[in-house]
Design a protein around this nucleic acid. Structure first.
Lengths: 258, 258
DNA sequence: TCAAAAGTGTTTAGCATACACCCATGC
DNA sequence: GCATGGGTGTATGCTAAACACTTTTGA
């Protein structure tokens, strides 16, 4: 048996003993890059299908702590925007049944599989991350992981396509009552970049002047000096989020109607 | 041992074998009566504290089905508005530990308690019900159940106070993009009654004329004949929800800004 | 005839939308 | 000097908010 297979068996063992049975976490990790909204997917060994990264909850671990821990273990990211959006509990969603073939190829014996929870209820979280800061941490169950454009996501395992759709819908609605961009953009950014982020998430273009007017009116941005030119045109200003005001706006809700 | 205690032991046994371990459901059941928003609470035998009604998920039962089933078993209501709003997973939230005293008084032995999940992750649902149609179905674990005004709810067991607060917050936000009232009002109702419902949920008073104008503009109401007088004043019209349009509005979202 | 509550229409103000010209830079 | 993209202000229209008088009814 290869070392990888041994590692997988160890993971499965831990799954049975170290974590709450019947409960899992799935992450829709959004990143923003080259004007497109991306989502992080991974692929198991011996499988051609992709799926969302996930995690589990320790016996004496708070759910939210488990979500942050799992995400940190997987992405190396600590300060991310992480939000629970829905809990999925259809029976067919995660029967190990459906992926038995893969499990067998992973070198798991019937005894390994025996005792796995027959189905999970999975708590969906979505995360917004600065994709330049992410360094993917591989594990034995991850053969490959990469970013996909949200509108080019293939058919995924389980109900993970629906999860992405609902996460995106929730994210768009959230844009209506909370600011967004912190943790998703670099520390300093330009107004056109911020606007592109909004346009990408909303899937529609917005008026430059009106967008800037609204954003500035919220008082969550601090303007810095000029940007070094990146092309044959006037240089845009750098902006930075005013963290205090940004946090306050997050609390307040009810502004930010797009 | 009393018959009630035998029933309780049977319930606890079923809890260990018939349902997913570590997963529970809690209901914030809202009713509207006498101009006040109410929430249904219950009290266990041998306990002075109140708490939210709950349910569990069968091994081969979809989460949503389990929610509807539990609610039906408890309230006799079939067609209710039921919405998942958050999943709670703090460790301290449901340790049986915290209520050991009560369990002992219920006649449970250490062996009964042994094997109970140490903690649950609980999926919160809120329901809107026509409180006149509710007939409470008692079980061995329910010593007493009744409606409480939402602003007079006492300190509850576990984290159930927080649950009510978050459910109400979600309900209020929902009022911003979906119509509400079907399942919460009688079949026919008057405009002032509908307005009172909105005012009650939002916790603020609204302008009569503007409210009526907006409501009628949504096309979800059918006006009937005059109401029989209920006082020394002009009789209000009866209205009824136009179910087809109401359902369509529920799908559409994004209208109904209050 | 008076009090209590419901029906109804108009005016106003604020905000979101639409829209155009000037400016800086690199080639 | 010209093409590219960024900066900025104003005019308009729509809709939510503010607001008052008339009608019905029972006591």
């Amino acid at each position: 048996m290869t070392e990888a297979k041994t590692e997988i068996r160890e993971l499965i063992r831990a799954l049975k003993t170290d974590y709450l049975p019947s409960v899992s976490i799935d992450f829709v990790i959004f990143g923003f890059h080259e004007g497109a909204l991306k989502v992080l997917l991974l692929r198991w060994p011996y499988s051609t299908d992709w799926l969302l990264p996930g995690g589990r909850v320790g016996h004496t671990e708070n759910l939210e702590d488990a979500a942050y821990r799992s995400l940190r273990e997987r992405t190396g990211l600590d300060t991310v925007f992480l939000q629970q959006f829905y809990t999925f509990g259809n029976v067919i969603r995660t029967t190990y049944f459906a992926i038995e073939e893969i499990l067998v190829q992973m070198g798991l014996t019937p005894e390994d599989i025996q005792g796995l929870p027959a189905r999970d209820v999975s708590i969906g979280y979505y995360a917004l991350v600065d994709h330049t800061k992410l360094n993917s941490v591989p594990d034995a169950l991850t053969e490959e992981s990469r970013w996909w454009n949200v509108d080019e996501v293939p058919k995924l395992l389980f109900d993970h396509n629906e999860m992405i759709i609902l996460a995106l819908k929730t994210l768009r609605r959230q844009l209506g009552y909370q600011p967004i961009g912190y943790n998703l953009l670099p520390d300093t950014f330009t107004m056109p970049q911020l606007q592109q982020l909004y346009e990408t998430i909303l899937g529609q273009s917005l008026d430059r002047r009106n967008f800037q007017k609204r954003m500035l009116s919220y008082g969550i941005l601090d303007r810095l000096d000029e940007k070094k030119s990146t092309g044959a045109h006037k240089a845009p200003y750098w902006y930075r989020f005013n963290v205090a005001n940004y946090q306050k706006a997050l609390q307040e809700e009810r502004m930010f109607i797009m």
